[in-house]
Design a protein around this nucleic acid. Sequence first.
RNA 1: CGGGCUGUCGUAUAGUGGUAUUAUGCACGAUUCGGGUUCGUGCGAUCCGGGUUCGAUUCCCGGCAGCCCGACCA
Length: 419
Amino acid sequence: MRQSKLFTKSLRSISSEETAINAQLLLRGGFAFKHAAGVYSYLPLGWRVMRRVSDIIRQEMNGIDGQEMFMPALVDRKYLEATDRFKLDVGYDAITKTDKEPGFSLGWTHEEVITAIATHYIASYKDLPFATYQIQTKFRNEPRAKSGLLRGREFMMKDLYSFHTSEEDLNDYYQKVREAYIRVFNRCGLDVFYTLAAGGDFTANTTHEFQVLADVGEDTIYYCQACMLAQNDEVATWKDGEKCSECGGVIRKGNAVEAGNIFPLGTKYSEAMNLTYTDEKGERQHVVMGSYGIGVSRLMAIIVEVYHDERGILWPQAVAPFAAHIITIPGSAKAAQAAEKLEAELTLAGIDVLYDNRDSVSAGEKFADADLIGIPVRLTLSEKSLAAGGVEVKRRGEEETRVVAQAEVLDILRAVVSE
RNA sequence: CGGGCUGUCGUAUAGUGGUAUUAUGCACGAUUCGGGUUCGUGCGAUCCGGGUUCGAUUCCCGGCAGCCCGACCA
């Protein structure tokens, strides 16, 4: 990708009203565009990050036998009335099918939809268990959208639903999801606390959230750094400074952002929507369900909250929009020629490269842009670097640079990408 | 949904009861090239509605929008 052709440009300044770091950096760097509070477009750079995060999620969901599918955003009123969730404030429920009354809600979650589908395909215990998921835009009529991409009126979510013959089987799967979720967040570079919480509108049971410590966080948790367990203050029995009841570590109190959550739904939805199966004895039973969510766009924002410095973002390699950023110091035809060759070589090897080929932009501005955009490896080509033996390599976030021969760059990047 | 603050070129800002400052951006021309180079010329704005007034971007009322706090939040 040539930076001269990149649709977006970085902005020198954004509204002073944006106080959330993720909003400042994602807007300034050209990753996202804000249309209204809580309503964003993902621009080419941001969408690349979203796709990388989504792909990590897909791999982990497929790894626990999740089957990807896609459901409508327009949720039929009859489904939501079956579970008495049509009038909940979080939904945009005024989508009219006729001019008389609302026929749809813009989906804010899809338990009812997947359950409606399941009633057509589940008849026997032999059909269970199974799990399906989707990555889709969700709509929530937030009374107060805020904190950049952390709390949106419209946002990207991965929602997984599982169906079982028994509570035991649900619990086994619940633990598998827990482990898969922790792998997702760790692969995105985040330390998460597995956090006990209340179930809200989804279930009367307690549930679990995956919380990432961050100043911007809306939740207060009591956490143990030793065993990575935590309790949301709405259900907490721990106190700051106490010993962890699980491992004896010290409990701390902190602000955190909820990156995901998992709910043991039991038979709440299967009873409301009459989802049953016939067991080995020929008796009808209600299907036992679980639901599991990760806010994909929120995850991108959390990564920015955790990985940034005063100059910009520091994307972890696993989610970076590009693996490497080639920069030429303007004014040197030799450097530009070498850069084109390097770009071609890396691209051929399957490495995503952004090449800042702009010729009318000063070196300083290119460096400032590179720091803001936050691609993990910067490759600078100039008369100076060529004279010193090739390409100057610098990791974002480190001050150290080193010059290597062009022939070595590919091996270095292969190593970085596989980290 | 309650409370507070705020709406001025694309962005960020100054100021004013008599149509508006500066920077950045953008266009053109020069200059420069290892951390947002420098110079010139040009383009570009008072959220919407009503009221007061000879005259409102300014004052008043209402609306809308944004941010922050609270409530709410899988």
